[in-house]
Amino acid sequence: MGAGAVSAFHVSLRRHVFLLLAIGLALVMAAIAVRWTRLDHGPFFNMYEILTSNLFSLGAIYGIACWRWVWLRGSVSLVLPLLAVLATWAFVASPVDSHALPTYETLWLWVHLAMGKLFLGILLLSLACAMALIARSAGIKLADLPEDTFLESAMWRFLIWALVFETGMLVAGAAWAQDAWGRYWDWDPLETWAFLTWLSAVAALHARFAMRISDRLGAIMVIGVFVLAFLTFFGVPFISQAPHKGAL
């Protein structure tokens, strides 16, 4: 089988994978909408709601990015396992009804959430590039993706945009916290880990632009930033009663 036939097979397979992703996202969106209507508040209070809303936003941002940038579609085998982990986790999480808090009735919350979703979604795109670079350095070809120089450049550009939205998330979150709990910053677990994530992204970008680190080290740093972000978004709410300690 020639290179052209292999490519045609991959493209056909990918098309089916993306079709399944679109169907899955539509179902998650429907589930969120039904729950939202029934409980009369958005999905941001308990672990089940955090998982389902982020599963949707991550899948949607990745899907839109793949539609916009054709070259990114080759990363589907690297990204989908992560979404599958979230989907499985959401499936086993308790879907118990949550209770809306009056401190969540502010525009700052929506800005905070929108910025957070965009941050994690764009960071996922950066992660896809980073994982591809690491896989290639380990001898895996990944022929459906562009060359390393291009991937490296895309990885940093996505990370910078992720940083813009994470900064916006922290600012909007602080403004909300001031109104809700009478302090803009109190180093609660989520604030601490979100700040460490921001710090790691700044450190990675600074190392790249000021010190010219290698592609491989850069990719490892981006993966590190994503691990911290993942712990912030899903690890902290998993071990605490509410996304924010002060929220109860």
């Binding site: 290179a3 490519s7 991959h10 940038w69 070259w71 022929a143 060359e147 550009r157």
Partner: peptide, 21 residues
């Protein structure tokens, strides 16, 4: 700063298998 100077990756780029072909 980013909007002016740092656009997102280009739309079309040759993939590795295309380059090989």
């Amino acid at each position: 700063h980013l909007l002016g100077r740092l656009t997102l990756p280009k739309l079309s780029v040759k993939l590795a298998h295309e380059r090989a072909a």
